[in-house]
Amino acid sequence: MLQEHAKLMALFQAAGEVVGRKKLQKIVYISKKFNAPFQERYNFHMFGPYSEELTLRVEELNSLGFVEEVREQKSGYYQYRYSLTPEGQTFLNQHQSAIVGNDTLFCRLNDNSSKFLELVSTILYFDDLTEAEVRDKVHTLKKKQNYSDEDFEEAYAFIDELTHLH
């Protein structure tokens, strides 16, 4: 039951608290690209790959009381924190998780900033382009983020690290 929801609960269980909706979006997207069996569909949006399905699924988990959402007022916007509730933990204990072997991946992703994960997920989104084409594309589509060469080096190194995680 609730297979797809259970996968997200397993992510929160492994990664602990996730701060920021954008960050959560990118963690799931990048995990998918590294074969974690999430089913949420993604489209490209202004800030990289985005899944409305994921947004709703997390709201459903919150509505069922399995995931806690805390809204914080920041300067000019809201930020959301997500974590597994005791009931969510009980549910996971009762149901065999449909997602195993990805805990390290989830933790490594959660260790990084949402801005960095936005770059990583965008690079992965354009994985059919050459590295030079990807850099051009990112610089055009994300002019405001002003990613430097060092950011790209770091992102590619991180992707390489994730590739060798399994």
Binding site: G20, R21, K22, Q25, H45, M46, F47, Y50, E52, E53, T55, L56, R57, E59, E60, K74, G76, Y77, Y78, Q79, Y80, S114, E118
Partner: peptide, 16 residues
């Protein structure tokens, strides 16, 4: 979440 429609949400900064 199984349905392909949404309604307006401002969301978090830089979410969409």
């Amino acid at each position: 979440s199984d349905l392909p429609y949404d309604f307006y949400r401002p969301g978090e900064e830089e979410e969409r």
